[in-house]
């Protein structure tokens, strides 16, 4: 008896966690890709949500604060992608910054819903130093 209810409790907890996890997995999963992989995947199956990492191409940042529009080119060894983001410009976004964007392609352009900027790798160590500045779009939080 004693063992059995413990088992039941564990099973219920697991089942509950599963019931929570499965729908969340469907809604919250994003492909984490390099630019080359993302371009290939978009060609095969357009319209999916991606999370892409790369670096800002120097000289490509166009900031229109009064239109809440920020655009830049993002590159890595696998290619280059134009990115558009609606919102404020993060302080640490600059030429060559490492960025991680989440969103979808609309034609050639990647529309980022979130934009994360990595701090310069020079300050890699401390917890605070690694903190990326995330810009949430508000609604999904």
């Amino acid at each position: 008896m004693r063992k059995r209810w413990k088992l039941i409790l564990v099973v219920i907890t697991l089942a509950g966690a599963g019931a929570l996890l499965i729908p969340a997995l469907q809604g919250g999963a994003t492909y984490y890709l390099t630019i080359g992989e993302a371009l290939a995947k978009e060609e095969a199956q357009p319209g999916q949500r991606f999370r892409i990492a790369g670096n800002v191409t120097p000289g490509s940042i166009v900031d229109q604060p009064t239109d809440f529009r920020l655009s830049f080119l993002m590159e890595d060894e696998g290619g280059q992608v134009p990115v558009v983001y609606h919102g404020a410009r993060p302080d640490n976004l600059q030429d060559g910054s490492g960025v991680v964007v989440e969103g979808r392609f609309h034609g050639e352009t990647f529309h980022a819903e979130t934009l994360m900027v990595q701090c310069a790798s020079k300050y890699e160590a401390a917890e605070g130093a690694e903190h990326p500045a995330e810009i949430p779009k508000g609604r999904d939080r």
């Binding site: 929570l20 729908p23 969340a24 997995l25 809604g27 919250g28 999963a29 994003t30 492909y31 984490y32 999370r51 989440e102 979130t114 949430p136 999904d140 939080r141």
Partner: peptide, 10 residues
Amino acid sequence: IQLDAAFYNR
């Protein structure tokens, strides 16, 4: 595959 804030928030 990256699980994002939407996953954790659910």
